[in-house]
Design a protein around this nucleic acid. Structure first.
Ligand code: MN
Ligand code: MN
Ligand code: ZN
Ligand code: ZN
Lengths: 156, 156
DNA sequence: ATTTTTGATGCAACATTGTAGCATTAGATT
DNA sequence: AATCTAATGCTACAATGTTGCATCAAAAAT
């Protein structure tokens, strides 16, 4: 006697990553889903390298180039945004609802990047005629609390 | 009869580049002087590549690495500053007197970078305790007047 | 369920931007 | 003129992306 088989299998739990991708007309692939999940789970923007490390940590096989292309696609679709952190590599973060563009803090000692959710980026500014602003990036550079403490201890 | 020879040759016109370098305890070298002159002559920050092209234009021989090191030294000395333009390469500009930190505009169509002398970068912002800001970078991204015009013409 | 379509992948090669090591040169000083 | 050493000019190397193209597989069509 065959095991019970419902006529329609239960739909997979609709991960928001999968939904996001489909909603933008893209194919739901392993790397895309994993990258979105990693970004969703992070409180600060991540570099390609950090994302790759996260995927490795979860034993999700992935190709370097595919990862770059996945990130590129996410940015094109407006699902994620790219940030010039002050280091050489781009960083990526999910564009969370509300769309309030915020500034970032870059610690020049340890390289850490932090979202300053409370610091908005200026939406406009006096520009030459004909110029149009589409987005603004504000990065504050300095020392984070941990690195500032170390410096003080060191200099006593 | 020998030609007239003054006992002390007339001092070379003290270029401000030469003075700047000496004042900072550096050796006055061909590349350093040329780089400063190029930067002084520009109204907007220049990439390594643009500076190299400018030197070529003036037939000033120079080595790629030496140019990188000259720029690095200028930044260390506080004579110039490095800007993350939104493209992959750094850009450099002389820190002109007054020290008023200004924002920059990056045209995402043509890549041009413009100094927004009238737009100050925020000097402070609400930060987590222990964090210290040392400098801020504000870059507005969008379309310059020329590129905006082209777009309009194209879409009619 | 099978076939078809084509977006997306995975690999190798390449490009750009910047650094490190080290012998040699030349700017400044004695 | 001799000396000292910062700076140069090479060559390699590193880090971060990008391009081309054959192959695969997600989604659609049958
Ligand atoms: Mn953020
Ligand atoms: Mn400027
Ligand atoms: Zn830190
Ligand atoms: Zn433009």
């Amino acid at each position: 006697m065959p095991a019970y088989r419902p006529s329609t299998p239960p739909p997979p739990p609709p991960t928001s990553a999968r939904e996001l991708i489909s909603a933008h007309g893209g194919r739901v692939t392993r790397t895309r889903v994993a990258v979105i999940d990693v970004l969703l789970g992070s409180q600060h923007p991540l570099s390609h390298d950090e994302i790759a490390a996260a995927l490795d940590g979860e034993h999700i096989a992935h190709d370097r180039v595919t990862l770059y292309r996945a990130l590129e696609w996410l940015v094109e679709q407006g699902i994620a945004q790219r940030i010039a952190s002050g280091e050489r590599a781009w960083r990526f973060e999910i564009r969370r609802g509300g769309e309030h563009r915020h500034a970032h803090f870059h610690c020049e000692r340890c390289g850490q990047i932090l979202c300053l959710e409370d610091v908005p980026t200026p939406a406009s500014a006096p520009l030459p005629p004909g110029f149009a602003v589409e987005r603004a990036e504000l990065v504050l550079h300095g020392a984070c609390a941990a690195c500032g403490r170390h410096a003080q201890e060191g200099e006593q």
